[in-house]
Computed example of a mutant assay.
Amino acid sequence: MEILEEFRDMVQRFLQQEVAPHYQDWEAQKIMPRGFWNVMGQAGLLLVDFESEYGGAEASFDVSLMVQEEMCRAGYHALASAYNIHANIVAPYIANIGTDEQKQTWLPGMASGDIVTALGMTEPSAGSDLAALRTRADRDGDDYIINGSKVFITNGIHADMVVVAAKTDPSLGSKGVSLFLVDAHLPGFSKGKKIDKMGQHSGDTAELFFSDVRVPASALLGSAGRGFGYMMQELPRERLGVAVQAIGHVQGALDMTVAYVKERQAFGQSISQFQNTRFKLAEAQTELAMCRALMEKCLAKFYQKKMTVEDAAMLKYAATDMQVRLISECLQLFGGYGYTDEYPISRFYRDARVQTIYAGSSEIMKEIVARGLLGR
Rank of each mutant, 00 (worst) to 15 (best):
R353F: 06
Y23W: 15
S174R: 14
D196G: 06
G252M: 01
A20E: 13
M198S: 09
V354K: 07
A312G: 01
R136D: 00
D321A: 11
G227V: 02
L235F: 05
A293G: 10
V324N: 01
L107T: 08
R214Y: 01
V67D: 02
A82W: 01
K30C: 13
G120C: 02
Y54F: 13
F274Y: 15
S174L: 03
N38I: 02
G192N: 03
Q251H: 07
R371L: 14
F189T: 00
S328H: 12
V67P: 00
A312I: 05
K297D: 10
V39H: 11
N38G: 08
V48G: 07
A318F: 13
F302Y: 14
G75Y: 08
G188Q: 05
E283K: 15
A318E: 05
L186S: 05
A266S: 11
V162N: 08
V261E: 05
Q273L: 14
D351M: 11
M307Y: 09
M40D: 01
S346E: 12
V48L: 07
G375F: 15
H201A: 09
V354N: 05
R371P: 00
A300N: 07
E27H: 10
Y83Q: 09
Y358I: 14
M40E: 04
D255W: 00
S81M: 11
S128D: 12
M231E: 12
T205W: 15
M71P: 00
A165R: 09
T320Y: 01
Q42V: 06
Q332D: 13
T117D: 00
G360S: 12
Y260L: 11
T205K: 14
A266D: 04
V48Q: 00
D169L: 04
Q285H: 13
L172M: 09
G55P: 15
I85V: 12
Y54T: 00
C291G: 06
V11F: 07
L119Y: 09
A300E: 14
D351T: 10
M307Q: 06
I364E: 03
I146Q: 07
R13W: 15
R325G: 00
F228H: 10
S178V: 01
G241N: 06
S52E: 08
R350W: 05
A131M: 07
G252V: 03
T356A: 01
A224R: 03
G113E: 06
A217S: 15
G372C: 04
Q251S: 08
F152C: 08
Q355S: 10
P236Q: 03
H158E: 04
S270W: 11
F14K: 07
L333F: 05
A318H: 12
M256C: 10
A78F: 15
L294R: 13
A78H: 13
G141F: 06
E2G: 01
G113L: 12
D142L: 04
S149D: 11
S202L: 08
C298N: 10
A28D: 09
V19I: 14
A359D: 07
G188W: 03
V309F: 15
I85K: 07
I97W: 15
G227M: 03
G372M: 13
V63R: 09
I153Q: 04
I145Q: 13
S190W: 03
Q17S: 08
G225H: 04
P170M: 02
K280D: 15
A80M: 02
V258C: 10
D9A: 14
A80R: 09
I368P: 15
T356K: 13
G173E: 07
A219G: 03
